[in-house]
Design a protein around this nucleic acid. Structure first.
Lengths: 419, 419
DNA sequence: AACATTTTTTTGGACGCCGAAATAAACAAC
DNA sequence: GTTGTTTATTTCGGCGTCCAAAAAAATGTT
């Protein structure tokens, strides 16, 4: 209801619809496209042949493999999928102890990876953009893909990212604030680049893999070294005015609570993140500053074991985390009444220790009627979900841009004469 | 990107666009419609003449009034506006001490009003739907408008409304929970009926009157007898999966805080609402149950005066309210990063007393970077805003429904022969 | 080899929008 | 008053998109 509708909008919308179906369900025949999009077979033929002519899609040339239940009569289907060579994308995940990169083709298949260990926290912030650009260059060199074949770079980072400005506003991975990234990468490589919050990318990945399951309003909480949240509102990841939304980890739980890495006191993260759990267990959390170092998984496993053995300090750390998480979620529920809350990340390993306190806090924190309509569940998430989500989002962006300025483009007039 | 696009969608969307412009800016000439919608003059002529033929719009027949700056040459414009007789709507506002009703015509002009004083809190909840239906009947009788001319009833209520189910899930105006309303009204009057939260209706009204100002993401907080919030996300009032969203008043501030009317402890309302301020001032807030009675304005004025005189209990009540409000807003900012937060309602009279504590809490509660991007302002709001917003929303619903099932409808073929 | 079945393409038509030209309804100037 | 000038609105022809129906294609079945 925002935009004026004309034949151009119809064109764009239906093409996107078709490509969206393809992203969602993978290669499919024209008939299936019809089922997914509601378009008539005639239109599907017309649209798909145009997209194939544009090099965006391609027909599966593989000789029809008679799979399992293929005892069907009639003309066999021809599968159609994205042309993998049409557009590549690069995803970069920034963590406290290094960068993780992946190059994907137009279908989202990962072609090459690269990891670099660099302590980002104390490094020169002005050099960070250059570092990312150099790492991408190295990745592309390794995969023998020229930069001009890459349509987009997506960068996922913990903390507050301003995707409009292309900066990392604040992140526990850096001492400094407002670090420019997008502009540097764009200048050096000539590839459009986007910075986003890592938890949002997980949400993006979940939507990408199961649109029906995350169709309405849902919150995805990622617990681990930090606490992140991706918010799905009406089936779309909510990015807020500047792209810096859903900072659940830095939502206050208690005024004058323990110090958080963001510099405030009493944030949810200051109770629930790995470093916070260790800090509680070590005793003097109220005054002790937060740690900015990477925490080996072994430390967390040891803490969990201690809690399971019943050691008071460890047990109480998880109790505090459960309470903070519960009240935090209660507040989210009061405001947004999501129909689903998904807990994920390494922090959920200790769910058995956390759950009772979480539930008690939820009961105390929000009216029954609202609480009863939300399903809270723990979902095991592939560590790679951030990379996958970033790739997914980048590809969908590329899809959208194809038709962004799309005038009817009178290509292929000559072809009509052939017929 | 959800719906398949075809000529029918184009038709619907452009007609809605035109009607939306008309709702927004009032009567206007065809040229202006073109400017607002981006449609060509030719299309505007075609669309508007069809809507006029359908009785949805009408040309202003008034002889062109040469207003102030009308020293323009050229053919004068003909104003077009909604046909006021096309659809009437009824708005009902439920408060603790009675009902307020208004009947509006298709342009949103109020034709008749009615107020009824009934203590709803202890009344028979099963009779409430009937009461509303009877009051509407009386209102219509007074205005001599038959029920079949009313296209929709909107009911605004404090507390949690489930607009899907058409029930008042929980409201401080009632002792009982889950009171069916819509179904009763629909059965008795045969008019589609919708229950909604009152603060959401204020937000709806604000959007209706200034779409540009509330275009992005904003939160509207209504402070008074209770504390409500309307959330505007991407220019639209967020209603959540069931229509029960943005219960800011019942978002927890502090675990184990004072008792709230919702039965929990430590809700924002239990610090900020009128009854809470009085309770703090009276001393033993921690244990004292909340009051469910209507509070005369004089009481609040007296409390404000006491605080301005520097009486410790009163001053501290406003300090507590400011802190709760500040941390509450800080949490909202962390999650949604709205670009605008609007405070409204009688509670804002005491803003001078509240503001310092609110600001201190905001600073303590959320990272600077996020806080700096939000404008917090006090906006004086007409007491009638709830009624107006409810009317507005009802009319927009009606607008949308006109084209909901709209097949091309081949009306007026014969007219072509005349030309 | 003829028929059945399913997918895909072709063909002709409908609908909605647009640009350009025509028409309408004022005001302005002589 | 008559002739322009200006602005608003309508008319007309054309374009692009989709769709339904019919045709063609490609395979299985009898």
């Amino acid at each position: 209801m925002r935009e004026k509708a004309d034949s151009d909008l119809v064109r764009r919308q239906n093409r996107l619809l078709l490509m969206e179906a393809l992203r969602q369900h993978g290669a499919m025949a024209r008939v299936e496209m019809g089922r997914h999009t509601g378009l008539s077979p005639a239109s599907i033929t017309s649209i798909s042949s145009q997209l194939i002519a544009d090099g965006i899609l391609e027909e599966d040339t593989a000789p029809h493999v008679p799979s399992e239940g293929s005892h069907r009569r009639g003309r066999p289907t021809t599968q159609i999928d994205f042309n993998p060579k049409n557009a590549n994308v690069v995803a970069v995940k920034v963590s406290i102890d290094g960068l993780e990169l992946a190059l994907a083709d137009g279908r989202g298949a990962i072609l090459a990876r690269r990891t670099s260990r660099t302590a980002t926290y104390d490094a020169d912030p002005t050099a960070f953009g250059k570092l990312v650009a150099d790492e991408i260059t190295a990745l592309l060199a390794k995969a023998r893909v020229p930069a001009r074949r890459v349509a987009r770079v997506g960068i996922a980072v913990q903390g507050v990212a301003d995707s409009q400005a292309g900066t990392v506003v604040w992140s526990p991975a850096f001492r400094t604030r407002n670090i420019a990234v997008s502009s540097v990468v764009e200048e050096r490589l000539g590839i459009p680049c986007r910075v986003a919050n890592d938890a949002n990318m997980i949400a993006e990945g979940l939507i990408g893999s199961d649109r029906a399951g995350y169709g309405g309003t849902a919150a995805v909480v990622f617990m681990g070294y930090g606490v992140g949240m991706g918010l799905i509102i009406n089936g779309q990841v909510y990015h807020g005015p500047t792209g810096a939304a859903a900072e659940f980890g830095h939502m206050n739980h208690l005024p004058d609570g323990p110090l958080c890495r963001c510099g405030r006191r009493g944030c949810v993260e200051a109770y629930v993140a790995d470093y916070s759990l260790l800090r509680w267990a070590s005793g003097n959390a109220a005054t002790q500053p937060p740690s900015f170092n990477a925490i080996p998984e072994a430390h967390m496993l040891a803490l969990e074991a201690a809690a399971h053995r019943g050691e008071a300090a460890a047990v109480s750390a998880y109790a505090k985390a459960g309470e903070a998480l519960g009240f935090g979620l209660a507040r989210i529920i009061a405001i947004l009444t999501p129909s689903r809350i998904v807990l994920a990340g390494p922090g959920t390993r200790a769910m058995a220790l956390i759950a009772p306190h979480l539930n008690r806090a939820l009961e105390a924190g929000v009216v029954d009627e609202l609480r009863r309509n939300v399903a809270i569940e723990v979902v095991p998430i592939d560590t790679d979900m951030i990379i996958k989500g970033t790739i997914d989002r980048a590809l969908r962006h590329v899809d959208r841009e194809i038709f962004a300025h799309g005038p009817p483009l009178k290509r292929g007039r000559e072809l009509e004469n052939i017929a």
